[in-house]
Nucleic acid binder design. Sequence first.
DNA 1: AATTTATTTTGAACATGTTCAATATGTTGG
DNA 2: CCAACATATTGAACATGTTCAAAATAAATT
Lengths: 227, 227
Amino acid sequence: MTKVTKLHSTPRAEDTRRKIYDSALQLFREKGFEQTTMRDIAQKAGVALGAAYYYFSSKEAIVLAFYDEMQHGSHEAVLQEMQKHKKMKDRVRCVLEKRLELLEPNRKFCDALFRHAPDSQDPLSPFSEETRPIREQAIEHLRLAVEGGDMKIPSDLQERLPYLLWLYQMALILFWLYDRSPHQERTRQLTEKSLGLIVTLIRLSTLPLMKPVRRTVLELVETIAIP
Amino acid sequence: MTKVTKLHSTPRAEDTRRKIYDSALQLFREKGFEQTTMRDIAQKAGVALGAAYYYFSSKEAIVLAFYDEMQHGSHEAVLQEMQKHKKMKDRVRCVLEKRLELLEPNRKFCDALFRHAPDSQDPLSPFSEETRPIREQAIEHLRLAVEGGDMKIPSDLQERLPYLLWLYQMALILFWLYDRSPHQERTRQLTEKSLGLIVTLIRLSTLPLMKPVRRTVLELVETIAIP
DNA sequence: AATTTATTTTGAACATGTTCAATATGTTGG
DNA sequence: CCAACATATTGAACATGTTCAAAATAAATT
């Protein structure tokens, strides 16, 4: 009879994992992802090199764990903050701002997350099967932002809009990552302007004139949707 | 008196460089970028490992050399093909199709080009200072496609449209890179649909109603433009 | 031709992500 | 408490991108 055993779930294991995870993030924040070696991490955590790989399948998996924790840890806070607003624009802005706010202290190593983005086969890609749960919760936030808002969304657009906004959020994060302007001022500019544009475009999309455009956009979204 | 010496420019050097370059591309095509080691490349080229680094500053630099060669090598062909068309849509399609056609046999390793895209400090990023010449020629192609076309472009948009189309092209290539559909059918779909959409949007942008939208878009483009 | 300088080539050495067999430590059923 | 199993830890070994000082070769100068 095989016993189902959860690995890494004993108190001691949990503790070791935490030590490794915390050491890693601290070093990543100080020196960046590339400049931090797995040996650095193990040493700081006071364990052998191999231990790091017992708990994390790779160096980048540590960053993914961070992203996962951030995504799930922010769930309540985002919902709460969002409730304060009625307008869809403000609600979406909430989601976007909260994300950047959480990423802020970790700006130095988050680029590692996008390193493998172009390969959807890579488990660490934001588009991969493995990162689906993270992605879906992020999309869920945006769905709530849209549905709880005051805006009338054409029904055929309603379904896919959250996914589109997620793509938009990813693009913003990417831009933010290498925004070299002081305090990432340009990202804030870009966010405001693009957010306004999106709202305007959705408004315009209700015009009869725009029917064919909306149809094309929707077909397009189906083409790029992740099954 | 210092003598200006061009490195790697003697016939022998040129020959060695070529051997390394050709071996590398062949291996990349067969096994992909990751699966090919610098030792493989050196061995196939019949030189020592160090020689590869004498001619290419890194493994990825070989891919960049390929991209550069492709970009410059295709210049005439693109211009010629483009002349056959009057409509802007067809002319832009020419540019897009030619690019994908040239990338096609090298699909297996081109993803390496985007690996470092998120870091504009990285010399190999498509947005870096180092890759500026390649980028600018690509943008130039799109400028010619637009200007030689039959379409009336609002003057304030004219200036930045080629850059926008270049961003669009980059996104398409990215999509194409991990399009797993047979013969990358979805990329072709996406290209047609999005191209149609772009043309429609430009048309619509001439409407007086769209004046404020166009202004926002242009401000937005200024924000994301590479200086 | 001999000497000096410039270029090209070499391969050993290094750094670092990763694997894995061995060992230690803890847990459990008898 | 003991054996047997499960879990956790170790560190040496490996693969591979990269560096670099030394050696080989070619070119230029005297």
